[in-house]
Design a protein around this nucleic acid. Sequence first.
DNA 1: TTGTATGCGTTATCAG
DNA 2: CTGATAACGCATACAA
Lengths: 345, 345
Amino acid sequence: MASSTSAAEPLPVPRRARSFVSAREVADLAGVSRSAVTAGASVSEETRNKVLQAAQSLGYHVNHLARSLIQESSGIVCIVGAAIDTPHQSRILDAITRRLQAIDRVAMVINTSGDEASVEAALRQTLNYRADATVVLSGTPPASLVDTCLRSGQHVIVINRDDQLVGPQEISVDNDGAAREAFHILFRAGCRNMAIVTSSAGTPSLVERERTFQAAAREAGLDVSVTRAGPTSYEAGYASAKALLPGAGRPDAAFCVTDLLACGFMDGARAEFGISVPDELCVVGFDDIEQAGWSSYELTTFSQPSESIAERIAGLLETSGHGNSGKPRMVFPAKLVWRKSVRPR
Amino acid sequence: MASSTSAAEPLPVPRRARSFVSAREVADLAGVSRSAVTAGASVSEETRNKVLQAAQSLGYHVNHLARSLIQESSGIVCIVGAAIDTPHQSRILDAITRRLQAIDRVAMVINTSGDEASVEAALRQTLNYRADATVVLSGTPPASLVDTCLRSGQHVIVINRDDQLVGPQEISVDNDGAAREAFHILFRAGCRNMAIVTSSAGTPSLVERERTFQAAAREAGLDVSVTRAGPTSYEAGYASAKALLPGAGRPDAAFCVTDLLACGFMDGARAEFGISVPDELCVVGFDDIEQAGWSSYELTTFSQPSESIAERIAGLLETSGHGNSGKPRMVFPAKLVWRKSVRPR
DNA sequence: TTGTATGCGTTATCAG
DNA sequence: CTGATAACGCATACAA
């Protein structure tokens, strides 16, 4: 300890109340050299133990911030997403954060659900904290965002966004195949007057599902109606039912591009018109959110392989050199989950 | 390019492919001093513009990692939570991340849903990245976690955990008041044979709701049964209904300590026994998750003020000195949301 | 206003 | 194994 009463001392360091201890202090307490603290294997058992004990008693934790200054990797991965309180998005966020931890990365989540102005500010965080990569979940697409990240040489991974962006690595689900399959199971169920229930959001994957379903219908010589009652929500699904199901030429089937829409649609059909599913109306959803399996819905839908997507992200992060090159776009199949909202056969 | 064939060159700096630009480079391009780049106000309009333009064209972003090395604050806030894919938890996570961004902090989320072993590892991240604070959401309680953080002088905020921990600042919801109110509305609805549906998780707030409800019943001279069919989930609620509702002395009311349990319970009651809610069975939930408002449930429940909690957290972070002292525990009321799962009057 | 020095806690390298 | 030293990018203080 320095003498505490010497008044003449300049005391150059204000000695702010640092609560974290440095490797230097550990070395001092252990009575070893500074290098011995962070040395990997080249230390004797005894030295190692002294260091460990000192670190333990002082509560030492490596400062990743300082480490990242020199190393190429910060260990931080930014997850940019909107509507993370939504069943599907929260599940994928859950899967990603778990995976990330498993490979010793940490997730920094940027919520773009706020006002659009804050998106820019939020994005800056990604760069400010020198994230190793940025994962953009489907949703409101901050178009300039991806570009800015790429310009800074960041690793960008984009999920379920089929835009023509070059640079980012893309992971998505086979929306086309699923939409086509959705049409066929409805067709085989005998439905000939189908409707598409979607939202006004214009999310790429949603648009694709709509377009492909419509194309499949056209090929079969069928015309389908499209309803857009608002954002991608339960309420919009309910409102769609209210708007679509009265009248004479009531549809006998609905392809809801999202389970949330589907749940709302089913509830609207039942509560407002007493329609029975699947006897009078068949419904197919997308995402396989938890609620799709609840006994009030028993919704036939397509599951998004959250775990596989998260695993893939982890893989990309681990193998990636600095470039975004090499890996092609990855498309996962969306597996059909048969429940009871479509008549069998 | 350096000559690639000169064998004698020491080539001291490997010059790794740095993708991020430093303040030095901005200064060089702008033709100003290094200090001028990060200087706040003491810079001429002209200099400022040159700097801004250079920064823009180079794609410069301040390195928070380096900055945090010298400053007291890293701007990082750790959110530790389990089951973030759950309606209630995901909503609160959503609220917190939004608030945090509004006050220029960034959320690092640690998912403790994985194996218990990873919790320790995850916790270390908090310390490693020198987070300004750690917010522990209700859920699996890593007991030692809080302690370790506090020992490192970290700011710890704990939500809905009424343990006797000293040190952390606590934010919670008035579980007692709500549970008591739940009992009384069921009592006033004429119910005399009540059941509590809870989980085997042992989460502090859930335990409190159960205990208080039971106490209120006892005061009124009533005996209530308690069912625990598993974790805090829809399935457990469903299973509880299956276990509880056959038999002779079937309850006429259930207080489900969570909306997820309540939804499962209602579905079980209807699907397995054709019981009508609220005519034959009244149900009260807790959390006011989105699904509680869906027309298949119309669940009477208590809302957790996610936004207020998030706001409070932001407030604590902004005003807090280094100590955890001063602020008392904050308890928010849980507002009753009347819907249709309890008979009126 | 600008240049320069110093420190933050690491990692990496090298001489003893 | 130890000690010394050079980065890393920024902030801060001080001198020009």
